[in-house]
Amino acid sequence: MASELIDKYMRPEHLPHIWCPGCGNGIIMRDVAQAIENLGLDHDKVVIVSGIGCSSRAAGYMDFNTIHTTHGRAIAFATGIKLANPELNVIVLAGDGDISAIGGNHLIHAARRNIGITVVVFNNNIYGMTGGQYSPTTPRGEKGTTAPYGNIDRSFDIAGLAYGAGASFAARGSAYHVQQTISYIQQGISHKGFSIIDVAAICPTYYGRKNKKGSAVDMMKYQRDNAVMQDKAVTMTAEELKGKVIIGVLAQVNYPEFTKEYQKIIDRLGREAEERERK
């Protein structure tokens, strides 16, 4: 099955990818492809938008209309694409630094607007492309090359942040929980409005080594053994949730979608103009 998926949705001539052995990005990229396959989307009507960072290279490997933009701005480019042609399924692939640090403003405003794009976050808790600096999702106390004595910042919960800002669909997956993550991405793409799936990735090369997390396999096992479903997580205290990997749909709400609302304005103005002409 995997090879069929590669033939259909990847660009084999541009593989192998640049990601390190054991990196979680490949799994998440495959999850996205599988979700698209399961939904039976028109290949040519899918646009993949990415920013800058390790995960953003995924756009180049996937055989759709793909655009690899500037650091942090993928959602803003995607907004222009979606509004210009609402027929397109616009999917943003982004890392944690890309989407919540330099691109944080675009994330909250796209969520607030509830524009119908889907954001899949490859959340590996570190800046991998530049060599292991701490990111907005690096847990407090953990290390990065720019947090040599331990990170003193508090970390962002990206799905929660987006939901708080108005995202109408927010879920969390992980590199280990493939079936669940595929399902969440599917639900996100089908959802009419802004959707975000924050997927816990693994970075054995930088985050893992810096913080003595063991091998890639150890890091995957950690995700398996420390996963808590969203339904259960809401009953647990912050202390109990420390170090846990929360999986599940955080929220699904129906709000008016931006491009549809805009089209209503165009239609109304068109009708009014027609009426004026008739008079």
């Binding site: 701005r73 907004t79 694409i81």
Partner: peptide
């Protein structure tokens, strides 16, 4: 983001 959206729309 205004500049980005402008470019995105043109790509579409």
């Amino acid at each position: 983001s205004s500049m980005a959206a402008t470019i995105g729309a043109s790509a579409a």
